[in-house]
Amino acid sequence: MTIKQLNIQQDYALFAKQSHQTSFHRHYAIELVFCKKGSFDISTETNTYKNLLTALIPSNFPHQFQCVNADCQMLFLDPLSNIGQYITNTYLINSKKEILINQSIEYLFTDTETIVTNLSNDSKNNFEIDFRIENCLSKIQNTPESTNLSIKQLSELSYLSESRLSHLFKEETGISIRQYILWNKIRLAVEKCNKGKSLTTAAHSAGFVDSSHFNKTFFNMFGSSPFFALKS
């Protein structure tokens, strides 16, 4: 599988470059990193791991990444997808918010193409979730690209106050509603960029105020600029 640039789908994102370095960042997605040639380093707030071949990074976990002249590929998984839920429940439930690099996760990386192929048939609703949050997830996923969806609108949809909705969403999904909205905005913007649109046009189409807002949000989530990440 050759990935020349960042490609974000509904439930996952793929990214690969031979040389890649990020600042400290955290993102909504669970991240699987694997290296078929060379190795990579990851730093957290408490540890530095060098010469790694595989790593599994929990959602919202601050880290810094570096690889030089290595064949590294990163698979970002939506924690609310079936495979995201499976990995969380199987590997991350007792991880105490630390990256996993032990041998127990290595088999995850032996058949990555099959994992990615199956993601297109993945469904978010095969695990138990409050129906009001399920309605919000569906609304966020299916909102037209140029529409700015607010928490107030979602609270009216769910018949909950904004504060109660925010609390229940975090309780049911493990992430904040704002993060989930931003993840979907970035997904839409990247999709536009990959179709040849400029960063400015893509940012506006996805509901960002301007390209600066998109750049800042992207950097905070991926640790590098969208220009670098999307460059072939």
Rank of each mutant, 00 (worst) to 15 (best):
R187W: 02
Q141Y: 10
G196H: 08
G174F: 00
D130H: 12
E31K: 09
I133E: 01
K152G: 06
F24Q: 08
N89D: 11
L182V: 14
H63R: 14
I133C: 02
F127A: 13
R164W: 06
I175P: 01
F169V: 07
H204Y: 12
H213A: 15
D71Q: 14
Y12W: 10
S95Y: 04
V209Y: 15
F61R: 05
K96L: 14
Y86G: 03
L165N: 00
N142H: 10
I186H: 03
L168G: 00
Q9P: 02
D41K: 09
A203L: 01
N126C: 07
I175E: 05
K124F: 07
S95F: 04
L149W: 01
H167M: 11
P144I: 06
S150M: 06
V68R: 06
T117Q: 14
H25P: 00
T110M: 11
K192D: 11
L154Q: 03
S176P: 11
P144Y: 02
G174K: 03
F222K: 02
E191A: 14
S224Y: 02
T143M: 00
W183S: 04
I175Y: 06
L188S: 13
R26E: 15
Y159R: 12
Y91F: 15
D78G: 00
H167E: 13
I93A: 11
L168Y: 02
S43L: 13
K195E: 13
Q66D: 09
T90I: 00
F219I: 13
H20R: 08
D111F: 09
T2E: 14
N125R: 09
L108M: 06
P58G: 05
Y180R: 05
Q10N: 10
Y159E: 13
A13F: 04
L80V: 06
G174I: 03
L165P: 05
S120D: 09
E128D: 08
D41P: 01
Y91H: 11
E191G: 09
N121M: 09
I186C: 05
